[in-house]
Design a protein around this nucleic acid. Structure first.
Lengths: 336, 336
DNA sequence: TTGTATGCGTTATCAA
DNA sequence: TTGATAACGCATACAA
């Protein structure tokens, strides 16, 4: 390694390494002129303090890890965008890990992150999770953790969520107002936080309007595109719903494809509403009525929340839960 | 810091730190039984070698940085997914940086990465770039770098691209075959590699069919949604094209919105084809004819290429350019 | 096969 | 205001 380090820079300037080091930190006492001389030379020689040495010395990495179930999803890429912006403004870097909804990957990622690589974690949990207790195994040494959107309710850690119950209630209400009598709820994992909360909003809205709740109108979908296609087509033909409320974006897409195949007309034969952050929802055929979460803002808030924890580990006055509001945007897929 | 480290683990086992260290690497001589004893105890105490100490000692970080212009774009999120998978399989972590097409951010990211934080960089360059020479300033100390998709032609480094010229030629040909006489080409930065290559395919296809090339049918768009909306509406009303070929996905979306507003019917009044990795292109109104790049594969190849460079810095026999093939998928937006 | 000693590049403490 | 030195946690050369 012939690259430049603090020692060579010190030699080149006839100064000690401590002085050089001081020039790169704001708080230290250092002569203004020397500082400038150092910074100039540093720029000339393209010197930068080695992050790993600093991290080792300071016991922090200025890095946060972001763990998401999937990337090819407008919601998550927007959320990450928000996280990235806030992190950068705070001088932090972000590591990305994708679980593909695989619980084992999630556990492995988290465990490996506890080696100093990251100072904190922002995570939307995998859909498969059964035993969340692994998160408690770290005891007091667990890294600061912030959940967003998909959370484990039994883990005590700050979280950023949206008003899912209300949104689901309103979404279902909207379908009822548009004349739907048999509304199916499509969900990937109904035992998971968001699947469950969203389902409750649906059930309660049905109750309010005295629409009979049918267990089999809750359609359990999977993570596989092919399987979902079959499941949804069967649901459409067997259950003959006149409205569909999907808990995640890709189930709405799958519904559209199924309807095209089966010659089911949206919205005449079937009305569709979905959670989705798709920016081009108006361009779909027909344009899709969505419950749109403020994805970027969720990411930003999650990052901010993590930073308040990092800045002040002791302070227990920080908010433990931030709830943001989603918007229902009515479009043609639920037209009367 | 009361966390566990190699020294404490050594004490707990009555061994030396070097023996512990050896247990965590495969190549070293160590008694099988001791190794197991160490690993068992390590698991019990939740010990993991500190990455920053290892990195400092070994002068490598097992981390690669990925720099992209934007995240909320199906192409890039898919590419990153591919990169992430290959990286993980190789035991590498990935850092994500988003430039928002801001050249200054790109320069800053790259410069800061040369502090040991990453072993290599995979980048799709920002659209604004003027002076690429900053990349040469690092001399022999420049980190291994792989470009994908949006490249600087004047920088000598491995790259993964698609057959953009051919695709553009075929796309234009397709529009001509569908009866278009006035085909506009929408581009964000025509001096940038992909904008230029794609334009050349367009121009040559026009020539082949003796369609007159008109300079003003090359429509220069921006990175702002609002500006593009105005630019495209003006282009539609002033230039009255009967076909549009857009170099990036979001210009196709902007075109759809503009047509909705202006009551221009696609495909009757105007046919549209675009580069796009949108998985739900069939669901658009009308379904969009696309040139679809193998985004995930591009990411995978870029990562593989970087790893061959990292594995063997000296070997100059590695491929310097990988060209993958895009697919034209004809849909209703170019129907006769 | 295991242990000892040294250094990776930096920063904090203390002395000058 | 600056310099000498130790320490962060680990991996390797060398000794045992």
């Amino acid at each position: 390694m012939d690259s430049i380090n603090i020692k060579k820079l010190a030699e080149a300037l006839n100064l000690s390494t401590s002085t050089i080091s001081r020039a790169f930190r704001d708080n230290s006492d250092i002569n203004g002129a020397t500082k400038e001389r150092i910074l100039a030379k540093a720029k000339e020689l393209n010197y930068q303090p080695n992050h790993y040495a600093s991290n080792l010395r300071e016991q922090k990495s200025k890095t946060i890890a972001v763990i998401v179930p999937e990337l090819a999803n407008n919601y998550f890429s927007q959320a990450i965008h928000g996280i990235e912006r806030v992190a950068r403004e705070n001088g932090y870097h972000i590591l990305i890990y994708v679980t593909d909804d695989d619980y084992q990957k999630e556990v492995t990622f988290i465990r490996h992150l506890h080696n100093g690589r990251a100072d904190g974690i922002i995570m939307s949990v995998s859909g498969e999770a059964n035993d969340h207790n692994y998160l408690n195994k770290f005891g007091s040494k667990r890294l600061p953790l912030v959940f967003f959107d998909r959370i484990y309710e039994d883990i005590d850690t700050p979280r950023v969520i949206t008003n899912d119950y209300d949104s689901s209630f309103l979404a279902t209400e909207h379908l009822i107002e548009q004349g739907c009598k048999r509304i199916a709820y499509l969900v990937v994992n109904k035992s998971l936080s968001i699947g469950k909360t969203r389902m409750q909003g649906y059930i309660d809205a049905l109750a309010k309007y005295q629409v009979t709740f049918e267990e089999n109108l809750i359609v359990d979908c999977s993570n596989s595109y092919e399987e979902n296609s079959l499941i949804i087509k069967e649901a459409l033909t067997q259950l003959k719903p006149d409205g569909i409320f999907t808990s995640v974006e890709r189930l709405a897409f799958a519904t559209y494809y199924a309807c095209y195949d089966l010659n089911v007309n949206i919205p005449n034969d079937l009305k569709v509403i979905s959670f989705s952050s798709l920016e081009i929802a108006p361009l779909l055929n027909p344009s899709l009525t969505t419950i749109t979460q403020p994805a970027i803002e969720i990411g930003e808030k999650a990052a901010e929340l993590l930073f308040t924890v990092l800045d002040d580990q002791a302070n227990k006055n920080r908010p433990n839960e931030v709830v943001l509001t989603s918007k229902i945007i009515k479009r043609n897929s639920t037209n009367k």
